[in-house]
Computed example of a mutant assay.
Amino acid sequence: MKAAFIHKSKVDKLFDLLNYIILTTVMMLVLYPLYFIVIASISDPMQVSLGKVWLWPKGLTIEGYKAVFSNNQLMVGFRNSLFYAVIGTVFSLVLTLPAAYSLSRRDLKGRNIFTFFLVFTMFFSGGLIPSYLLVKDLGMLNTIWSIIIPGSVSVWNIIMSRTFFQSTIPNELLEAAKVDGCSNKRFFISIVIPLTTPLIAVMILFSCVSYWNSYFNAMIYLKEHALFPLQLVLREILVQNTVSFSLIKDQALVDQQQQLAMLVKYAVIIVASAPVLILYPFLQKYFVKGIMIGSIKG
């Protein structure tokens, strides 16, 4: 059966046209800075400085990428960030999902009290100095665990996961499983986890992005450069370049170094953002579904 033809008035057509114009403008405002970084990273820095690079790269060069991939410190930081993101995400899933499922169970005594204390930490924290002393007393200072463990649990993720469990896993399913002799542990592993694929995908995305972009904990807790994540390595390089420029007397050499630093800056943005941009399309459908389910009920 063919869909009925809906006749639009001139006002409706004008309204649609304005919507398309507004949405296209917003899309361009969001996408163009990303596109500019890409073309600037392979353009002559002098052309970029003069404002001649708008739509297409000019004076093609890959010196910035050569400098990035030839810098051992950058590659060590890239490897460390990847390690922190993977291991930290595993820790986050192992801790967040059981906690959220437990809080979603109506038969858990005192679950409102636990929820209150969790939410309380979202508004009030011990502060930087107590956190530093705690990490130090636990012997995690200047170790990989000072990056992974403190950021492994997010109260927001627990609350969102709890809401997902409440709206997705019916109590009747648990009662039917208990009749068949299923324990709580087996029910969670064999039934709950397979039914929460969208939620797990969302948690993976949130955790990976959080660990990948994290630099503050590393700046506070780490001293060895071999443990620095990529974000902290980039900060060190920018600081060093600023200091080195002030020590060079030859203006021509300063200009040359600044141009190379500009290329490196754009190239590093691309290299640092690529893993997250590659990961997101694979999780997008689960991401949308998980967010909507977790936000409607609860």
Rank of each mutant, 00 (worst) to 15 (best):
D44R: 09
K289T: 08
K249I: 13
F114H: 06
L253A: 09
G294N: 10
T24G: 15
L60T: 03
L18N: 04
T196L: 07
V48R: 02
Q284R: 15
P45S: 05
I278T: 04
L50E: 14
L238H: 11
T61F: 01
A218K: 05
D107I: 08
Y20V: 05
S183F: 02
I149Q: 03
V271D: 03
G181K: 11
P229A: 05
D137E: 14
Q231G: 12
L263C: 00
Y35V: 07
K58D: 09
R106C: 04
L230M: 08
Y286C: 00
F188D: 00
E172G: 00
L277W: 07
V90W: 04
I113F: 14
D44P: 11
F206V: 02
M219Q: 12
F206D: 04
G51H: 09
V243S: 12
L14D: 06
G88T: 01
S152N: 03
F36G: 03
N241P: 11
V264W: 01
D255N: 07
Q257C: 08
V288W: 10
P45V: 03
E175D: 05
S41W: 04
F206I: 06
W54P: 06
P150E: 01
L134H: 05
E175V: 11
Q257Y: 13
T143A: 12
Q257M: 15
F287M: 12
L195E: 10
K109T: 00
Y20S: 06
A100M: 06
I87A: 15
V155P: 03
Q231R: 10
L31K: 00
I204E: 01
L222E: 08
